[in-house]
Design a protein around this nucleic acid. Structure first.
Length: 419
RNA sequence: GGUGGGUUGCGCCGAAUGGUAAGGCACCAGUCUUGAAAACUGGGGCUCCGCAAGGGGCUUGCAGGUUCGAGUCCUGCACCCACCGCCA
């Protein structure tokens, strides 16, 4: 959500943001809803003012006069009720429109419609060369009994899976290795709830835009697709102290995604599943652009270091306008090489939002000048399993079908090779 | 699932026979001071109108209702505390 005052003063920036993000949004419509709302608001407030004034006078009046005044006020009340109905209507329309305003992308965000238009900004690592035809992760994992898809779907449904044996151990190893790396960097480890209320989802920008991708359990009960939601919202409706910023979290949570609209994509294997696990970096920092940019680069670097330690070749892309979420200002994806597909696949996603999320979540801090401001929010994947396991086994496969274990994970897995 | 108690402004505490949200602590600014402390004065959330000075509306967990008027009365909900039941 943006500041309506900012929108009134810069409608052209909003128009341009909608164009670049390929979002259907009419800023002129919002501005007329805004004007209409304020017009009715002024009228209602004037009537309320009169009501308050007369009402306050009642206790001082003599009985006969009092009765007359009460009658008068009863009429006024009816009149106000009528107008308030219109105000509610106008406010609802305005609010609905406000939730659809796109945040303004950074000037460095390239033009483009989809992830196909994202721009590579750097590469790391040599692509593996195999003196044999590399197998895909499904074949590799199933042949070693590291994953069970058929019982997975029998028990869990479409895209269900069990991770077994060294497959399960690899998962724990990745979590532990990643967690230790980030705790060492000063991040606060936190295990976050996946079951969340509607407000945090709305605050983070997942609702209403992506409502169909979120599992709904009940009236005010949803399953979050990422720890970004509970952890960014951790301080919802609170006022922080400037000297306590930044807040840096490394958050673990199970993640649930309906993957609606992605049928036909990655239907087999561990790339796209309904239930997975993620360690997510979340930062809340003081509200200025330079600080956001600095931490955005830092979050990206942290994850690159993890992928590098795992020895996986990857590239970093800057996402184009059409591939940005409504609230995102800029986003980098880290994409790891998948030998079987001969392409890079997204494993990490780092974005910053300025105060788009924290304005909705109402997370402020008191600065040294005693003024209240909204903090800025950012996040990036640290590790997502089992997707990264799919990348890992494909890159570390041998001719005989065995899988080497990356050196940094060996002490957690207790193996150097999965035979 | 059940019963009882609770939720007051940006933090902490806390008052208000149905009559229009006291007060204290902490914080910030100013005065004073070599500086600091103390003391004193002022300030505080959201929003609308206004160039401004200023004026208005909203805000007692949330949403409704009764009333000329609700922190206070009624209904529903959320959360916290205690206990009962069920269960890992």
């Amino acid at each position: 959500m943006l500041d309506i005052k900012f929108i009134r003063e810069n409608p052209d920036l909003i128009k341009e943001a909608a164009r670049k993000k390929h979002v259907d949004f009419d800023v002129n419509e919002l501005l007329s809803l805004d004007a209409r709302h304020r017009e009715i608001l002024n009228l209602v407030e004037k009537l309320r003012s009169e009501q308050n004034k007369l009402s306050e006078a009642i206790p001082t009046k003599a009985p006969a006069e009092k009765e007359k005044l009460v009658l008068e006020l009863r009429q006024l009340k009816e009149h106000i009720k009528e107008k308030e109905e219109g105000l509610r209507h106008a406010a609802a329309h305005f609010d609905e429109s406000m939730l659809r305003v796109p945040n303004i992308p950074d000037v460095a965000v390239p033009e483009g419609l989809s992830d196909a238009d994202n721009q590579e900004i750097r590469k790391w690592g040599d692509l593996p060369t195999f003196p044999f035809t590399p197998k895909d992760h499904i074949t590799l994992l199933e042949s070693k009994d590291l994953v069970d898809f058929s019982r997975g779907s029998k028990i869990s449904g479409f895209r269900g899976y069990f991770l077994k044996n060294a497959g399960a151990l690899l998962c724990f190893a990745l979590w532990q290795f990643t967690l230790e790396s980030l705790v060492k960097k000063g991040f606060t480890p936190i295990i976050a709830p996946s079951k969340v209320r509607r407000d945090p989802l709305k605050g983070c920008g997942f609702i209403p835009q992506h409502e169909e991708e979120v599992y709904k359990l009940g009236e005010d009960e949803y399953l979050s697709g990422t720890a970004e939601v509970p952890v960014t919202s951790y301080f919802m409706d609170e006022v922080l102290n400037e000297k306590d910023l930044p807040k840096k979290f490394i958050a673990f949570s199970p993640c649930f995604r309906r993957e609606a609209g992605s049928y036909g994509k990655d239907v087999k294997g561990l790339i796209r599943v309904h239930e997975f696990f993620k360690l997510e970096q979340v930062i809340l920092c003081e509200g200025n652009h330079e600080t956001s940019v600095r931490f955005h680069e830092e979050l990206t670097k942290n994850s690159e270091e993890i992928v590098q330690a795992l020895g996986l070749p990857y590239r970093v892309v800057v996402n184009c306008g059409g591939d940005l979420g409504l609230g995102q200002v800029k986003k980098y994806d880290i994409e790891v090489w998948m030998p079987s597909q001969e392409k890079y696949r997204e494993t990490h996603s780092a974005s910053y939002f300025h105060d788009f999320q924290t304005r909705r979540l109402n997370i402020r801090y008191r600065g040294h000048d005693n003024e209240l401001r909204f903090v800025h929010s950012l996040n990036n994947t640290a590790v997502a399993t089992p997707r990264l396991i799919a990348c890992l086994v494909e890159n570390y496969q041998e001719a005989d079908g065995s899988i080497r274990v990356p050196e940094v994970l060996q002490k957690y897995v207790g193996l150097s090779v999965i035979k």
